[in-house]
Write a protein that binds this DNA or RNA. Sequence first.
RNA 1: GGUCCCAUCGUCUAGCGGUUAGGACACCGGCCUUUCACGUCGGUAACAGGGGUUCAAGUCCCCUUGGGAUCACCA
Length: 467
Amino acid sequence: MSDVRLRFAPSPTGYLHVGGARTALFNWLLARKQGGKFILRIEDTDVARSTQESVDAILEGMTWLGLDWDEGPFFQSERFPVYLEFVEKLVAEGKAYRCYCTTEELEAKREQAMKEGRKPKYDGTCRNRAEEPAGRPSVIRFRAPETGVTAFDDLIKGRIAFANEELDDLIIQRTDGTPTYNFTVVIDDATMGVTTVIRGDDHINNTPRQILMYEALGYPVPIFAHVPMILGSDKARLSKRHGATSVMAYRDMGYLPEAMVNYLVRLGWSFGDEEIFSREELIQKFSIENVGRSAGVFNPDKLLWLNHHYIKSGDPERLAELLKPFLKERGIDPATGPSLPVVVKTLQERSRTMLEMADGAIFYYRDDFAYDEQAAAKHLVPATAPLLAALVTKLESLVDVTQAGIEAAFKESMAEQGIKLGQVGPAVRVALCGGTASPGIYEVIEALGCEETVARLKRAVAFIGKA
RNA sequence: GGUCCCAUCGUCUAGCGGUUAGGACACCGGCCUUUCACGUCGGUAACAGGGGUUCAAGUCCCCUUGGGAUCACCA
């Protein structure tokens, strides 16, 4: 046990994407490993862009991944009074000041500075303004030191230092009185007692300003760990055009949460040569020290492989439950046919996603499917009709409807007919499943039951007769 | 452009001064086999470049090059 406190602080302007999910996961893992607390905070100070739908989507994504939080969710929009209090405190102490520069003026100065090759930072016009013009709109800026160096020891990147002259006086309160991100994040992390901040490395440049504010406020500076970004296949920032980026989209595409968690954690973190980690193992083995420093490319193939792995080794009962919605989408009611867990067992090895499994399960629950044309042309031919008929006879009197019993019946029938499995097997497969790719025929028969199997074989014989 | 970050197979990575540079995904072969798969065996494939330091450098330092992030009254 320890008193580490970590947090995930997304802004509700969209769904939970894989990058955010990984950041959340790292925070959650460290909290769980060290027996600390994991806080969820919604950063919705930008009222215009924040939506309730996004909040719900983020919560849903977290829940799906199994990332439970100990405190929150807190909403920054509900804490405005807290922020204002701190703003006033800073102003009273002379650590922040009112700025009357208009957006247009600032814009012009920025352009001018760029044109002259200077840094486009705030020039400090209002920093030492003597009197305050009444009736003019104003913002509040944080008074940052103009000299010196602000540095921190990043748990992932190592020591990072910034010359204070590179920083400028950033706005902490807008004209409309609302606080801005770089301020609220500091106030919240400080007042919520956050000890370790794990976040995307796109925040590195914000860190020195934030440290300066912690110091101005008299709060201890947390430890930072900036995790590298996730890239698309072209090494550009991961986006929609690389494929799905929403965590929930992967659920809908038939991915298991444990596969997503396993994939995400290994993207940037490693533990020797190990690839497969259960949730418990991750909590035990995860460490920030083993998080890499460079950005990583999101590899859908490896995610798919992991998903396949977890489907192969998953509990059929659970998978059956997860499969139901996918079957429903296909208009199939599993109650009308063979036991779903039994069906699942026959499909686990050949399903990389639950969606594939659903497609593979369809034939079990429909007896009116059309035969694959090529398969029928090749295997449902006159020569096989009597062989199938012989099997019908054999199966109709079969008592031991297990794979072993079925196999024995097949062997017997084949011996009587003087043929090999290859001469009748493919036809049975097509008769039962409609195509040439399917689980083993003994498995299928066991799942289907003798009655249904016989019906399908008879249907195939009839089909041959009509052809 | 300024600042900051990054750099081992196509991809994810191991490596923490001395290795035939290892594993995984993907890819290509063999085996297994009633199909598809699973499994299994094997193969192709990497230290961005240049300087140092050192008996010894993928590992430490510097430069170059190449990526990326960030410079908002967004978060």
